[in-house]
Amino acid sequence: KRPVSAMFIFSEEKRRQLQEERPELSESELTRLLARMWNDLSEKKKAKYKAREAALKAQSER
Rank of each mutant, 00 (worst) to 15 (best):
K46F: 00
L18H: 01
Q17R: 08
K50F: 14
A6N: 04
T31W: 04
S26M: 11
A6Y: 06
S28A: 11
R62T: 12
E20G: 11
R22T: 04
V4R: 04
T31R: 10
I9G: 02
L25E: 01
L30E: 04
Q17L: 13
M7N: 09
S60E: 14
F8P: 04
A51N: 10
F8I: 13
I9Y: 05
A35P: 04
M7L: 09
N39G: 07
Q59A: 11
E29A: 07
N39C: 07
S60N: 11
L33M: 13
K57H: 12
M7F: 14
E24M: 06
R15C: 04
R16I: 08
A35D: 12
L56Y: 09
L18S: 01
F8D: 13
R52K: 15
K57V: 09
N39I: 06
R15K: 15
K50I: 15
K46I: 02
A47R: 12
R62N: 04
R2C: 05
E20C: 13
R22W: 07
Q19P: 00
R15E: 03
R22P: 00
L34P: 00
L30W: 05
R52V: 07
E53Q: 06
S5D: 13
R2L: 04
L30I: 05
R16H: 10
A35T: 15
L25K: 02
E27T: 07
L33D: 06
E20Y: 09
K46W: 01
L25T: 02
E24Y: 09
K50S: 07
S60W: 12
R15T: 04
K45P: 02
K44E: 13
E20R: 14
L25N: 01
L56K: 09
E61Q: 08
A47C: 06
K1G: 10
S28W: 07
L25R: 02
R15S: 07
L18A: 06
T31G: 08
S5H: 01
F8L: 13
Q19H: 08
S42Y: 01
R32Y: 06
N39D: 13
E27G: 09
W38H: 00
K57P: 09
K57E: 15
L33G: 03
A54Y: 10
A55Q: 13
S11D: 03
F10W: 10
Y49W: 13
T31I: 03
V4P: 04
P3I: 15
L25Y: 05
T31Y: 02
M37K: 03
D40H: 03
L30R: 08
P3A: 07
E29N: 05
E20V: 11
E27H: 02
P23W: 01
K14F: 13
A54M: 09
A54I: 07
E61W: 07
P3M: 13
A35Q: 14
A58Y: 05
K50C: 12
R16T: 10
E43T: 00
E21G: 06
E29F: 01
I9Q: 04
A47F: 08
E53G: 07
A35H: 02
E21A: 08
E13W: 02
K57Q: 06
L25G: 00
K48R: 12
I9N: 04
P23L: 02
I9P: 02
E12Y: 03
E53I: 02
K1F: 03
A35K: 06
E61I: 15
K50W: 07
R15D: 00
E61K: 09
A54Q: 08
E21T: 15
I9M: 11
L30N: 03
A35S: 11
E27I: 02
M37H: 03
Q59L: 11
F8N: 15
R16K: 10
A51C: 06
M37E: 09
R62E: 15
K50P: 01
R36D: 15
Q59C: 10
V4N: 08
E61A: 11
E12D: 09
S28T: 10
A58R: 12
L41I: 07
R2F: 12
F8E: 15
T31F: 03
I9R: 05
V4G: 09
K44R: 07
R16M: 13
S26V: 05
K45I: 10
K46A: 03
S42K: 03
L33Y: 08
S11W: 10
Q19K: 15
L41T: 03
Q59D: 14
T31L: 08
R32E: 10
E21I: 08
A35W: 03
K50M: 09
V4S: 09
A51Q: 11
S11Q: 13
L34Q: 01
